[in-house]
């Protein structure tokens, strides 16, 4: 027996600023689970934490950058992506992950993320979708499902939500996946893939928000929310992302939607532009050198128009 709980060291403590724990997130909040999955993925890959950077914006999820013991940015609202792109452009050896919420990335930062995907910036984006603005008291977000109750939609939401994976896939992301916070193992594997992949990788994670969203939508208990996710989620890879919408009390797809081969990234083109070879080349040659951009978009459309047959993932089991 160990006498004092302060003597116990959690295996992930080496990546955490333990003096700041326990963190601010509510009991049962999914953000802690996703952070745990991210740290497990880093641990499984054996990455050097001096080469990892976490960038996050404002909101509940934005607090994550303050808890990890690696270089991290807690940026202005919605601007996590521009910070991350700038960082990656100047320090290509770093592995940059944007860890932020749906409100930060898709409401105030909506333009930044679609353009980062279009440029194929070499960053990983983990977007935690809890269906509402949790930190400010549970207001309507662009991801709130139709008919859901929030503080600013007391009669039920009348607007259709964004389909985040569909939006990212058509914008040009090379890796698009969606999981929920109950699918911890598959989420960890997905984060591992994203960390190793070049180009713009996007992972949406549906997470319960028991305090702000669940309380008004009959999911006050985090256990109930997770059971709902487990029942409603259909695990399938390479479903057409445009069909993977989230509707209230209906089944939704989780899995990997897009996984394209290595492409020329934004940073590659940026460094190409400053290379001597490029500057000295005649204009016709320069055009050829930049054409990676067009190939990227064309291949992308082909994938979306002729999606491969959906594949079932895993056995029956627990489905997590």
């Amino acid at each position: 027996m160990i006498a004092n709980s302060h003597d116990l060291e959690h295996p992930m403590d080496k990546y955490l600023r333990t003096d700041r724990l326990p963190h601010v997130w509510c009991p049962g909040c999914g953000i802690g689970t996703v952070l745990s999955c991210y740290l497990h993925a880093v641990d499984n890959l054996g990455l050097d934490k001096d080469k990892l950077v976490m960038v996050s914006g404002i909101g509940c999820t934005g607090r994550a950058a303050g808890y990890v013991d690696m270089d991290s940015f807690h940026t202005t609202h919605g601007r996590a992506i521009p910070f991350a792109i700038g960082l990656k452009a100047m320090k290509p050896e770093l592995n940059v992950t944007v860890f932020s919420g749906d409100g930060d990335l898709f409401a105030i930062g909506g333009n930044h993320i679609i353009h980062a995907a279009r440029r194929n910036a070499d960053i990983n984006v983990i977007c935690i979708n809890n269906y509402n603005y949790g930190m400010t008291g549970g207001q309507l977000a662009p991801t709130t499902p139709e008919t859901a109750y929030t503080t600013t939609s007391p009669y039920g939401n009348i607007e259709p939500p964004f389909n985040l994976v569909g939006l990212m896939a058509v914008s040009g992301a090379v890796y698009v996946a969606r999981w929920t916070s109950i699918h911890v193992r598959r989420l960890t594997k997905s984060i591992e893939e994203a960390l190793e992949k070049r180009g713009f990788c996007f992972i949406e994670v549906l997470a319960p928000c028991p305090t702000a969203f669940g309380r008004r939508n009959e999911m006050r208990d985090p256990v109930e929310s997770l059971k709902y996710f487990k029942e409603q989620a259909i695990v399938k890879n390479f479903v057409n992302p445009l069909e993977a919408t989230i509707e209230p009390n209906k089944k939704f797809y989780v899995g990997k939607f897009v996984d394209l081969e290595e492409e020329m990234t934004f940073e590659d083109r940026l460094w190409l532009m400053t290379s001597e070879e490029f500057l000295k080349a005649p204009s016709k040659k320069r055009k050829e050198m930049i054409l990676g951009v067009r190939r990227h978009v064309k291949e992308h459309m082909e994938v979306l128009l002729h999606t491969p047959e959906p594949t079932e993932e895993g056995g029956k089991g627990e489905g997590v």
Partner: peptide
């Protein structure tokens, strides 16, 4: 190690 991974508070391992 499912509890370890799902615990949002890094409290169980």
């Amino acid at each position: 190690k499912f509890c370890e991974m799902i615990c949002p508070d890094f409290a169980i391992f």
